[in-house]
Computed example of a mutant assay.
Amino acid sequence: MTDKVRWGILGTGKIAKAFASALKDTPDARLAGVGSRNLASADWFTREFGGTAYASYEDLVHAPDVDLVYVGTPHPMHYENVRLALEAGKGVLCEKAFTVNRRQAEELVQLAREKNLFLMEAMWTRFLPALAEVRRIVDSGEIGTVRQVNADLGFKAEFGPAHRLFNPVLGGGALLDLGIYPLSIAVALLGPVDTVLAHADIGPTGVDEQTGILLRHSGGGMSVCSCSLRARLPSELTIAGERGHVRMNTMFYRTQTVTVVRADGIARTVPTPYIGNGYVHEVIEAQRCWRAGLIESPGMTHADTLALMGVMDEIRRQIGLTYDADSTQLSSTPPKENE
């Protein structure tokens, strides 16, 4: 085994670039190659980030010098791309949302287990120092038993209807792109979900442009989550207990501070800086698990991913949002890879 973990990136869009930047900030990681359906796009990518350019996804996943594959394509492509990498014998870190629906996710998890290969959803916020500090504070009992989580994430998307955020063929909508973040942390903090109540504004292209969600968790807590492509929301997350609350401050998914406010009025702010663009922490975890021979991360288990996909399936059922993948597993006309 080499000193550095050799990564292959599948896709050349915005999120792939962010991941490539994170690899530069991870001491024991190296970008080995980038795969695209357009060699010119892969060449351009490698000129900026390094590695070998591959003119197909198949060539990338079969490259002998690639240890782990990061899938950074649009949501509807995740199923076929992850399956391709697993069939080639490579461990996979797949960008959220893991798949379009739970049925697809179950098939991929089963395949990874059959082949004894590492597979993890790239829910990078699960590995941020801020969330670790929140867990420490909650576990200390300082704010009492946690009863409620409130989280939102949203911005005004200034894009046309063909953009992936609004295009149903590309898995568009606020829920899969934004809502998954507050939902994931709410479940991480309050546990499994018993009931779901959701409402949404469906836009002219047929995807949800903003969605509000109320969850009741099996442990007795409640969470209120919202996401929007229409409004710039505060994008904060608050965990409230009987004796106070903890707030992951503005843009909770990138926050470098958390604030504790107790019922007696005493407050303090705790610094929680992260490395690089924040993705480094999930890279470190994926590499740790892969080197240890694990097939999943204890911080983002297969069960976590499947449960969250199930919750989002129910939300989509309630708001009337469907995608092609809900009736067919693989698309005969794959969307563009730009994410």
Rank of each mutant, 00 (worst) to 15 (best):
I315M: 00
S140L: 11
T26H: 14
A286D: 09
R243P: 02
L176D: 05
Y181C: 00
I15M: 08
R30N: 14
G141R: 13
T305W: 05
L10M: 12
D28I: 15
D67I: 10
Y274K: 09
P168M: 08
G50M: 10
M251Y: 01
G50T: 11
K14N: 12
E87M: 01
T328H: 12
M309Q: 12
V224F: 08
L189Q: 02
G310Q: 13
M120F: 04
R6W: 06
R291G: 15
V69R: 04
V260P: 11
I213W: 01
Y54N: 01
K17N: 13
N116Y: 05
L176K: 05
A132C: 02
A105P: 09
G293H: 10
N81H: 08
F45P: 04
N116P: 00
R103W: 07
F252M: 04
G172S: 10
E121N: 10
P271N: 09
G91W: 13
V71C: 10
G72H: 07
Q287I: 15
G154Q: 13
R288L: 09
A16Q: 12
P64C: 09
A200E: 05
P168N: 10
Y323P: 10
P334E: 00
D43P: 02
A112M: 05
F166N: 06
Y57K: 02
F252N: 02
I202G: 14
N150T: 07
G8M: 07
F159S: 13
L119S: 02
E236K: 03
S184W: 03
V193R: 01
L189E: 03
R113F: 03
M309K: 08
R135A: 06
S184D: 12
Y279G: 05
H217M: 03
V92C: 03
E80K: 06
A88P: 02
L306G: 07
P192L: 04
Q329P: 01
V61P: 11
R268W: 07
A40N: 10
E337C: 02
N101F: 01
N338Y: 11
V187Y: 03
E282D: 10
W124F: 15
E296Y: 09
E107L: 09
M77P: 00
A112F: 04
R135L: 06
Q329T: 03
R268Q: 14
I284W: 13
T99C: 14
E87C: 00
E282T: 14
G173Y: 07
W44I: 05
L233N: 07
E242M: 09
T195H: 09
W7M: 10
A85I: 01
S235R: 08
A88V: 00
R268S: 14
A174P: 00
G219L: 07
D3R: 14
G33T: 06
H75F: 05
D152E: 11
R268H: 12
T238R: 08
A240W: 04
F118M: 12
C225D: 08
V69D: 01
Q148M: 14
P273C: 15
L215V: 05
V311G: 00
P182Y: 05
Y279W: 15
L237Y: 04
I9E: 02
A112D: 01
A22R: 08
T195V: 07
V258E: 03
K115L: 09
V207T: 11
E133T: 10
